[in-house]
Design a protein around this nucleic acid. Structure first.
Lengths: 314, 314
DNA sequence: TTGTAGGCGTTATCAC
DNA sequence: GTGATAACGCCTACAA
């Protein structure tokens, strides 16, 4: 109706005159706020923050912003946050990580808003979902250790990491190994707990030649316990982590671990939600993102072993 | 005009009927969105995330939410984020950490919105501000080391940490010490760079009996370099960090460091902004929050020294 | 005190 | 195509 160039000129002039479209009024009229709600357990968790940053970046490309609510997996908080977001008429919701527990997913679904879950193992639900390929990550670790000649591998896990632990067990079984001994369970995902559990395994002489920890913090604690016990890592015992937190590169020895694509998960979650908002009837795609094996200094050949395969190949 | 109890009953009934006040319409009418903008360098930085979480919690108590924008200290991004937030009619702005550089503060001020800066050393500006008491943190570290008998103390710093470094120098001078030798400057705040710089100091035999690092990550790298060089920490050399990141508790030895009250800074920043929104003419208070010395395993008495004062007292 | 109408700034519709 | 007009849902001022 009017040439592209002219349109631009007008818009430019408007802007230089200080005009800014009133987003609030537009939202009221169009019933779209270009705002989405992000529910996660705790924004201050570094992995969550990385996810949130990815989300922010992708949403920004479409003129969207996120409202973040930390649920702490508490029903009261969840209720309040959901109410707040409904009142603010968000265009969609993202449930990330542990916050995406069944009860919340159910409650959020009832609202009838586009919904995406992130970082949860895709279940039976027919929701769009993004998550890291945990089974694959577990296989990468197990294959790496197995290729280094490790046969007696213990496993250290903690609260909320049972999914990861199960994947490790499955990967070991697939490789003809079995956890040695049964997994040890920390009370929290802290270095202190990793240290304590590792000491316990040491005392029982039940470490094997390698320890798989289901999170980097536990692995870091493990390395501390080994150091204080005078056991050399990786010469005597190999240790692996999971997550590739900043800590992985900062401990001695540097930690071999699996890098989870948190930032990328954020990008993808945003895109999936934007797609859903644009076309609510689009099929609920699930996206699985590949993790990455980062080989550093905490893994080495099992003592008295000859290499038969490439430990960096998966 | 109507009794409190009745009002409650009506509101309760309304809610149970599924009524929710339309926030958008209310905002249009009242010209208040109960939304504030948070500009920081990078939401995925764990310290920033902790701050953002504090902000979120405090804002929530007043029915406010935050829109977060990661500026990366890039002028283009800053402009876009500011425009977006103006368009969305945020009620106020918070500039946190490195994002609060002079040019942005100036540009944001022009908007004429309530403004609070956080995590920057309070300058001459007449803006409300919250920040950690860096000079005090530096004194705590220096006093701790001095009380342990350390006299030859080297200092390791990195990009963006010059303020902290200056505080350390001042604290040392105040204690009658001088940095030994001049501070070494890492190219980034990573363990790798800390390792590299520490190796350099080791090679030049210029470490002294203690190393002050201006961030935990550099300190962690330092510990790695010492371990690989066979120098015992803390028996031969003490190391201190700054920040109390998760890594501080996960390395060997555990790191003596200064805990910065990031979460609390977030709470306070939110409160200051809410005050300013309620009464724009209130005086621009500046709030200084006390850091905390966390003594762990990386500091010990300097060799051949007798304790003359309590190193945990400040 | 109680009720009602007008307007916040957009956008979408509907005549022309 | 183009231009006027109503409506989004709430708040507030003013009239009854």
């Amino acid at each position: 109706m009017v040439s592209e160039a002219t349109a631009r000129r007008v818009l430019g002039a408007a802007e230089s005159l200080g005009y800014l479209r009133n987003h609030t009024a537009a939202s009221l009229r169009t019933r779209r706020t270009r705002t989405v709600g992000l529910l996660l357990q705790d924004l201050s968790d570094p992995q969550s923050a990385l996810f949130a940053r990815g989300l922010e970046d992708q949403l920004a490309t479409a003129g969207y912003v996120a409202l973040t609510g930390s649920t702490e997996c508490d029903a009261i908080r969840e209720r309040m946050i959901l109410t707040e977001m409904r009142g603010r008429h968000v265009d969609g919701l993202i449930l990330a990580g542990r916050a995406a527990r069944a009860s919340l997913v159910a409650e959020a679904s009832k609202i009838g808003l586009p919904l995406v879950t992130a970082g949860r193992v895709p279940g039976s639900s027919a929701l769009p979902a993004v998550s890291a390929d945990l089974p694959r990550g577990a296989r990468m670790v197990v294959n790496h250790l197995a290729a280094l000649g490790h046969r007696e591998i213990s496993c250290l896990t903690g609260p909320g990491e049972n999914g990861r632990y199960q994947e490790f067990v499955a990967a070991m079984v697939a490789r003809g190994l079995q956890p040695y001994p049964r997994g040890v369970i920390a009370k929290s995902l802290t270095a202190g707990e990793g240290r304590r559990c590792c000491r316990q395994l040491l005392a029982a002489d039940a470490l094997g030649t390698a320890v798989i920890a289901t999170s980097d913090m536990l692995a870091a604690g493990c390395c501390q316990a080994l150091a204080e016990a005078g056991r050399a890592c990786p010469q005597d015992i190999s240790v692996t982590g999971f997550g590739d937190l900043p800590v992985a590169d900062a401990i001695t020895p540097t930690l071999t671990t699996i890098r989870l694509p948190q930032y990328h998960l954020g990008l993808q979650a945003a895109q999936l939600l934007l797609d859903r908002i644009t076309d609510p009837d689009s099929p609920p795609t699930a996206r699985l993102l590949a993790p990455e094996l980062v080989v550093r200094g905490s893994t080495a050949r099992a003592v008295g072993t000859v290499l038969t395969e490439d430990p960096t190949h998966n």
